[in-house]
């Protein structure tokens, strides 16, 4: 938020993390079902990418929803 006007920086951060969460979760779920990656990573069996993607989704959605700019417009009306 710039002063009391505009979109909060936390909304931008939430949006970016939400997009990253979707991309990383989807890519890692696909990789889990159809292993195609040539490069082997350590502890592949724990599917860390899926969990990290879900974490990004949760953090991203929390910021995205809490700081959504249309909430202020409704309040002002």
């Amino acid at each position: 938020m710039v002063g009391n006007k505009g979109i909060s920086i936390w909304f931008f951060i939430g949006s970016l993390l939400l997009i990253y969460g979707v991309i990383i979760t989807a890519a890692n779920v696909y990789e889990m079902i159809h292993p195609t990656m040539e490069r082997q990573v350590v502890l592949k069996n724990i599917n860390f990418g899926v969990w990290w993607g879900i974490l990004l989704l949760i953090i991203g959605f929390t910021y995205f929803y809490t700081f959504r700019p249309w909430k202020n417009k409704k309040t002002n009306k």
């Binding site: 990253y20 990383i24 890692n28 990789e31 990656m37 990573v41 350590v42 502890l43 990418g49 990290w52």
Partner: peptide, 8 residues
């Protein structure tokens, strides 16, 4: 490179 899979 050791730990990070697709996207990470």
């Amino acid at each position: 490179a050791r730990y990070a899979g697709p996207g990470l």
